[in-house]
């Protein structure tokens, strides 16, 4: 289970889980689940486009998720954020449909983008994933206080500063998307960006601890899923999804039984 190509899977999946869980803390804090749905789903088009022109999947995901983040941030400045998010998403999905129609080997590639292909991760994805995790964690550390303040008491800073904080947050979601989609796919990204954070906040009232706990739960989810998938030969996506849901259910029970 820990030899050969599996080592790549463990490393990339663990990094994606830690960053996804940590960034997910702010996704839940800011009520930005829809954004965390739209950017990964829209970035699907980037991966399809990359396959078409022979570029790397990560590059395609990166370009489109950053583009989506900028679109949502800048359009959302003057209109409702959910509307800006929806329109950015449909525009990107439209491009994705176009790219897929040009592409010959679409169905298998599309499946791995939708549900991830953690066991098929190659060693040349480790480098970029390491760089992206370092970047994501560095940004999180730097932005910790302003992002937390803006998430609790939004709109208190002058307009330019508020926009800068929102764009930085969206960029974090884009970075997370780029490294997480190859592992769990676009449809299951919530299992790393929502479920661990939602579980963590039920377990502790301390913000810093909640973020660390969220990253830890995401890591457990991914490790458990890979191990179970390896032994049963069932898809990783099934285990990631159900373990995420279990973590959330258990945390609610713990929260409820502790009288909170």
């Amino acid at each position: 289970m820990f030899s050969g190509f599996m080592v790549n899977a463990w490393i990339v999946a663990s990094l994606a889980a830690v960053v996804g869980g940590a960034v997910g803390f702010f996704v839940v804090m800011r009520g930005a689940s829809f954004v965390a749905h739209a950017i990964p789903n829209g970035s699907f088009a980037g991966a399809a486009g990359a396959a078409l022109v022979g570029a790397s999947t990560l590059a395609g995901l990166g370009v489109f998720s950053v583009g989506g983040a900028l679109g949502i941030g800048l359009l959302g400045r003057r209109s409702r954020r959910d509307v800006a998010t929806a329109l950015t998403l449909v525009f990107m999905l439209g491009l994705g449909a176009l790219f897929l129609s040009f592409s010959a080997e679409n169905s298998e590639a599309a499946y791995s983008l939708l549900f991830g292909e953690v066991l098929g991760i190659s060693s040349n994805e480790i480098g970029p994933t390491l760089v992206l995790s370092a970047l994501g964690l560095l940004m999180l550390g730097l932005l910790w206080r302003p992002l937390l303040l803006d998430s609790v008491l939004p709109g208190r800073a002058p307009g330019r500063r508020t926009l800068a904080i929102e764009l930085a947050f969206l960029l974090l979601v884009a970075i997370t998307t780029t490294m997480t989609v190859p592992v769990v796919g676009t449809t299951l990204i919530f299992t790393l960006m929502i479920a661990p954070a939602a579980s963590a906040r039920a377990l502790t009232a301390r913000p810093g601890l909640a973020l660390l706990l969220s990253a830890a739960i995401a890591l457990m989810t991914v490790w458990g899923a890979i191990a179970l998938s390896y032994t049963t030969n069932w898809p990783v996506g099934f285990f990631v999804g159900s373990l995420g849901a279990c973590a959330y259910a258990l945390s609610r029970v713990a929260h409820w039984s502790s009288g909170g």
Binding site: M29, G141, L142, L143, W144, R145, P146, L148, L149, V152, L153, A157, A200, R201, A202, T204, A205, R206, P207, G208, L209, A210
Partner: peptide, 26 residues
């Protein structure tokens, strides 16, 4: 202010953010 009851932020965390919440870093 309608603060989410599940927000993982204690009263003391919010007050501490008043000291230097706009600063970068932890």
């Amino acid at each position: 202010f309608m603060l989410d009851p599940d927000l993982p932020v204690r009263a003391r965390d919010l007050v501490a953010l008043g000291i230097d919440g706009h600063h970068l870093g932890v």
